[in-house]
Design a protein around this nucleic acid. Structure first.
Lengths: 195, 195, 195, 195
DNA sequence: AATGAATGAGGATTCATTCAT
DNA sequence: TATGAATGAATCCTCATTCAT
């Protein structure tokens, strides 16, 4: 087996276990058992347990960061356009198991492990909030949104998204289209205010 | 020191540490060091580490459950009333350090530890969601809210609240009044839709 | 068993093993087996394997450093006095098993383990050399010793002592009196030169 | 690369590392990294780590044993002749880096590794001691040396030599001529006694 | 009601060695 | 003749838990 394949295999096994049981309840023993390799093989690819977790964060976050620009929110967008943009991003994000595992992992665990990891997670949420903050602020400037602290509102949106995605990952929500539609409507009205 | 006092002291120390570092990074050694008692004393009051965590969940959740009824949301409430009700509940919740620690703890950790704990946390959020769901449904029945899956909307609200509280616990938000006002407005418009 | 006793017991077992097999071939498992205690007990008293070794160095070196002043070498001493002084110090040093083990350990191992340890050992030898250097220099000043680099000569003396003690520790030499007598004579003549 | 070249290269790299860090702190990984060959290549030339160490001992000791006869000590030698003989041998021994590395290695490590290795090292020192012992005994027979246990004296000489060489290897001594001169004088007077 | 020395299962990590290519 | 991925035994270390005092 080629080096990269084996590494990817280990990363995938680790991601699944981390997402299932959390960081501390996942042992290196568990990871190698699932991957069907020997103890030493693990350390051929990763310095230690922390390292494989870090690499998972890096890989997945950088993937998300790279796909994020597709979520270009223009203040002039109408409801339908916004819905499509959001739906597109959600689909991209939730389309394969690894991403969902990663999100589950980040949501339930990464913060609690370590100040370093927590920082990276917080940074991600902040980036998201900044994107929405910019959108809201622009909309306000155009008179299309009512007055309100745009960053606070952005955080609300992040909170809603987190919850939505988490419910989706737990299988409580199955209809992505309906989710996106309802969410966008809620946000639009929430931002725009009474007309 | 009386039995109850000692136990409360241990619970408090544990809560603080759990909230600061998470379940696994908190050791019994750490708890007793902070409490200034001997190793054996800990096991005089708790069966094991899991037990003290469980008792923290019990105590704090039951406190919250008890105070929740004060958040009676009547469909007929106007914006100001809703805002007051929410502000009152938030104040109750965030007024002392222990509660905030508990929330931090629950948000960052409890889910990742154990299926059993996760269940309790989910149950709490579900209860919250149910309250909001009922409110939204009633408002819809009265024609005061636009059409939308009320449970989904309720989940959005829970997500916003979680995020808001989490930011407050992290010290990112300081003005509780403004928070409550902005949140209620956002929810109201989000629910009600364009008039 | 009291804390100090247990610690001393562990130190003694470790010293014996280190002296017998060297640092790396001695495992914590070996130490606790010999001491008849559990794995965790070891770590109750020492941070790690390096720590117990360090403590052995500290304890024993400081003992030697404390007893060293008894080796007061006056330039005016005659042969018999010098012999007595040396014999006294050697007796003090070689009188109980622990000291001998320690010396064996230091001679065969400490240098090879670690730069840090090596430094401490070198420092000890340097201290010894300095003592002899002072003696030789004083003797030269009094015209009782021939011209020669005193520090080099001191190093020779240290070398002879090391070899003598090492042979004694290996059981090749048994008569301490004869050893001291022969050594002192050799040194005296070596220093003094032909008359 | 030819078989012998590769092997010599590996031996040299290993020698350097063993001398620098000792047997246990030198890993096969380190040796092959320094030699720039693959893992498997190492085992093409040596059965195992112990084997390369053993071969280093063999090669170097046999070299020393071969050159030792040049150190023919005749009882009738005068001071100058003895000095020259010693200087010649020391020069031969310390003239190239490999020898010095080997000596450093033997002095700081070989004893602590393994009974088998220790035996070989002891044997070497014993051989040296025997040479000096013979010289002293012959000198005594000729009435040119005072009475003293010749083997004990020989050990002293070995001790002085070890110390001298070790200091030289550490760079503390730089003038080989002065060293030889001082050493021979010390020995001569030490042996001969007052006349 | 309190202590703290002792325990040992559990998990992480290292590294010499093998073997298919 | 050379490679380097894979192995797993050996070892270190942690920490929740027990129990005699």
């Amino acid at each position: 087996m080629k080096k990269e394949e084996r590494k990817d295999q280990l990363l995938e096994c680790a991601l699944r276990l981390f997402a299932e049981r959390g960081y501390y309840s996942t042992s290196v023993a568990g990871i190698i058992r699932r991957a069907g390799v020997a103890r030493g093989t693990f350390y051929l690819y990763f310095h230690n347990k922390r390292d494989i977790f870090q690499q998972l964060l890096n890989t997945n976050f950088s993937y998300i960061y790279r796909t994020l620009p597709s979520l270009e929110l223009t203040a002039g967008m109408n409801e339908k356009q916004l819905e499509n943009a959001l739906l597109h991003s959600l689909r991209l994000l939730l389309s394969h198991k690894n991403s969902v595992d990663f999100i589950t992992l980040v949501m339930k665990e990464a913060i609690g492990i370590d100040k370093g990891f927590a920082g990276q997670v917080e940074h991600f949420y902040k980036t998201m909030a900044d994107i929405f903050c910019g959108y809201v602020a622009r909309a306000q400037a155009l008179g299309k949104a009512r007055k309100a602290d745009p960053y606070l509102v952005a955080r609300f949106i992040v909170g809603m998204l987190k919850e939505a995605i988490y419910q989706w990952a737990r299988g409580e929500i199955t209809d992505l289209d309906q989710l996106a539609r309802t969410l966008v409507k809620f946000i639009m009205f929430g931002i725009r205010g009474a007309s």
